[in-house]
């Protein structure tokens, strides 16, 4: 009797354990069991916009001003601080946010960008001095409206491509020349109020894998107010780290 009770106890315990372990997934269609495949897909949660970019920059329209750009010293650095993402689908993401752009353009020759009767123009030094350096600095806050596509490649890598529009809000701008003085010295002269548009936009494109990408931008409209400056629009290509 004791043995029977003991066996019943063990059997009950075993049944309880097996009952837990036996729960397996199963699908029946019209009463027939089928094998099935499953996968969990998550909508993308993070974009590849925030981070740091460095691009060599150029200016369209400079040839009309008979001015050349020092390409190796003309660049922009972007620091994209905040993004807000809206997952649209399992591979698509809408991105907006806030970043900053520091652009600088160095010019060849003895001309600098300065205001002349309310219009910004490339002009030589009023005292006929030569310039060691002539540059234009333009700083923007950037607000993107971007669509991004992401796809897993292999087990760990994620390919991405994003593009769209970045709004530009001009925060600061100045033109600066370094004129050689008669005493072999250098005089720095800055010119502000250059009639740069307070708000503008550019088209951007970024692609890469995981935290590294290639970045490019193109500004379709001039950075200066119409009729108050040269028709110059910026473009650039570089790298991005996220």
């Amino acid at each position: 009797m004791k043995k029977v009770l003991f066996l019943i106890g063990i059997l009950s315990l075993a049944t309880a354990v097996l009952a837990q372990e036996e729960e397996k997934s199963n699908i029946l269609f019209d009463g027939s069991s089928y094998n099935f495949l499953f996968s969990w897909k998550k909508k993308p949660a993070e974009s590849h916009w925030t981070g740091l970019t460095f691009a060599f920059s150029g200016l369209n329209g400079l040839d009309k001003e008979n001015v050349d750009l020092r390409l190796n010293r003309s660049y922009s650095i972007d620091l994209n601080l905040i993004d807000y993402n809206v997952p649209l689908h399992y591979h698509w993401l809408f991105v907006t946010g806030l970043g900053f752009d520091w652009s600088r353009y160095h010019f060849k020759g003895d001309v600098g960008l300065q205001d002349f009767n309310g219009t910004s123009r490339f002009l030589p030094d009023s005292e006929g001095r030569s310039y060691r350096d002539s540059k234009l600095l333009v700083y923007y806050a950037t607000i993107p409206l971007i669509l991004e596509y992401q796809k897993k490649v292999g087990k760990r890598k994620t390919f991405f491509i994003n593009g769209g529009v970045e709004g530009l809000i001009n925060l600061y701008s100045k033109s600066q020349v370094e004129a050689r003085t008669s005493r072999n010295g250098i005089e720095k002269i800055a010119y502000k109020d250059l009639n740069i548009l307070p708000v503008n936009f550019r088209l951007v494109l970024r692609t890469g894998f995981d935290d590294f990408g290639i970045f490019g931008y193109y500004q379709p409209y001039s950075m200066f107010q119409k009729g108050k400056g040269p028709e110059l629009s910026s473009f650039g290509i570089g790298i991005a780290l996220h």
């Binding site: 729960e23 397996k24 997934s25 199963n26 699908i27 029946l28 269609f29 019209d30 009463g31």
Partner: peptide, 25 residues
């Protein structure tokens, strides 16, 4: 009714759900 014609019966357990949701069954 799980095995009748026109019926779709889906049973999912931890082998599918585990790690993705707190639903165990």
């Amino acid at each position: 009714h799980g095995k009748q014609k026109g019926a779709i019966l889906i049973e999912l357990a931890k082998d599918v759900l585990g790690g993705h949701t707190q639903i165990s069954r």
